[in-house]
Design a protein around this nucleic acid. Sequence first.
DNA 1: TCTGGGGTCCTAGGACCC
DNA 2: TCTGGGGTCCTAGGACCC
Length: 420
Amino acid sequence: MSKVFALIDCNNFYVSCERVFDPSLIDKPVVVLSNNDGCIISRSNEAKLLNIPMGAPLHLYRNIIDANRVKVYSSNYPLYGDMSNRVMTSLMTLNSELEIYSIDEAFLKINKQDNRNIECDISKIRKNILMWTGIPVSIGLGPTKTLAKIANSMAKKSENGIFNLDTEDKQNKILRNINVEDIWGISRRWGSKLRMIGIGNALDLRDASANKIRQYLGVVVQRIVYELRGISCLDLDKILPKKNIMCSRSFGNPVNNKATIKDFITEYAIRATEKVRQQNTRAQGIYIFLQTNRFRKEKQYSSGIMFGLNSPSCDTSIIIKLALRAVDQIYQSGYSYHKAGIMMLDLIPSEIHQQDLFQNTNYSLSDQRMGVIDFLNNKYGSGIITHGKIRQKDKSRWKSKSFYLSPRYTTQWDELPQVS
DNA sequence: TCTGGGGTCCTAGGACCC
DNA sequence: TCTGGGGTCCTAGGACCC
């Protein structure tokens, strides 16, 4: 039985989430900003028509935004994450294999049966998602993931939000009009290298010699050639635990003292270990880094340090201790710091208990303690229980900026219980 | 003044093993 | 004097994705 890939993509996802809870935004130009209100990372169609590009720094487009009364929002990840879950749960009702590719995209692998009209089923699920969640989606269909991606870009322009790139006729016609650097997996560098040998669009790449492409750019691009021919090389990715987990932020204002850096690293370490526990893993090492602001004309410094752990851990207090020691080692005074972060490295499943030769690690006690903290934070809102090290004083001065934040419509608790 | 925060995979080269 | 060849693992760097 042959298979069809579908790519479901939420239209202008963050903007659409804001619109669900504030319908007055419909038909108006709206943008959503990155952390710290720095860049524009989601745009409504009306905002796209104003030539505001993806990733544009807000301050460079202030004039256009003011002149056209563009509505501006800070990113509200608790809201978007929750809406994403709702969309993905709707897709699960189709009973096809599902890969959640990102917060706003998913692939489906659908069995093609002669007596069933896939486009009809797809159209139904699209309507249901809109009805159940309020989020409009576009759906592209094709014999491979790469073709489904291209079909999706056509679906965005189509009336009914669906496009099937199933026949050779359609493929010949469409691929000719897809610039080579717009193909999924090919970006600027590879795009310009391909143009240097006369390959400018997806049809050129499809019909190029796969072996020569492999010699020239490697196996990744060779696979794309086959995918464009309708030969599937990229299967659905199984949901595997992540191998590394990072938590990093840029600060709202420059920071030039070690104590504040330590406060932030503590916060990031708490969040990162939480994520590590969520996927039932432990880290075998951590990496801590600090950076000044590369966009400023001032003394630059950037440094990082890696620590291995004697026994794998997801215990917040152990990670914090180590992370703070790392800060002591890499912090240099006399610089204005702009960003810091922690990466949890080489994550392995929790069940693997690799004991330290020189030290007896009591996993069950630590796991119990972490379990209680996670339970309470889940139940009563993140941060209700935390580790003693954070000094709340003055922290808001450096906190990431989000001036234009909407309410956490779906996840906010009206009254948080007091826990001391 | 203001420029995101996450991730993945592949390759080449060195170390080491038998 | 002659000094193999194949395999694995690790790391750093480079490319890509949303």
